[in-house]
Simulated scan of single mutants.
Amino acid sequence: MPALDLTSDPVTLTAAMVDIASVSGDEWRLADALEAALRTQAPHLEVLRSGDAVLARTDLGRPHRVLLAGHIDTVPIADNVPSRRADGIVHGCGTSDMKSGDAVFAHLAATLAEPRHDLTLVFYDCEEVEAERNGLGRIEREHRDWLDADLAILGEPTDGTLEAGCQGTLRVELRTAGRRSHSARSWLGDNAIHRAGEILARLAAYEPRWVDIDGCEYREGLQAVRIGGGVAGNVVPDECVVTVNFRFAPDRSAEQAVEHVREVFDGFPLVVTDLSPGALPGLSAPAAAEFVAATGAVPRAKYGWTDVSRFAALGIPAVNYGPGDPNLAHTREEHVAEDAITACTAVLRRYLTGRPA
Rank of each mutant, 00 (worst) to 15 (best):
L4N: 05
P10C: 10
T14V: 04
M17H: 11
M17K: 03
S24G: 09
S24K: 11
E46S: 14
R49D: 13
G51N: 07
A53K: 01
R57Y: 10
R57C: 04
D59W: 11
R65C: 07
H71Q: 13
D73N: 04
V75I: 15
V81Q: 14
R84M: 09
D87K: 13
I89C: 07
A110S: 11
P115K: 02
D118W: 05
T120R: 09
E128S: 03
E130F: 10
N134H: 11
I139Q: 02
I139A: 03
R144G: 02
D148H: 13
I153S: 08
G160L: 09
T161L: 15
G165M: 13
G168Y: 06
T176H: 11
W187F: 15
L188Y: 11
D190I: 03
N191T: 04
A192R: 10
I193Q: 07
G197M: 13
Y206W: 15
R209N: 04
G215P: 04
G215H: 12
A224D: 06
A224L: 14
A224E: 06
V225S: 00
R226H: 14
V231H: 13
V244T: 03
F246G: 00
A254K: 01
Q256K: 02
D266P: 00
P269M: 12
L275F: 01
P277N: 03
L280G: 08
A287M: 14
F291Q: 01
T295E: 09
A301C: 02
R310E: 07
A312R: 02
A318C: 13
V319D: 05
P326A: 13
E333Y: 14
D339G: 01
I341L: 05
T342I: 13
R350F: 15
Y351C: 00
G354Q: 14
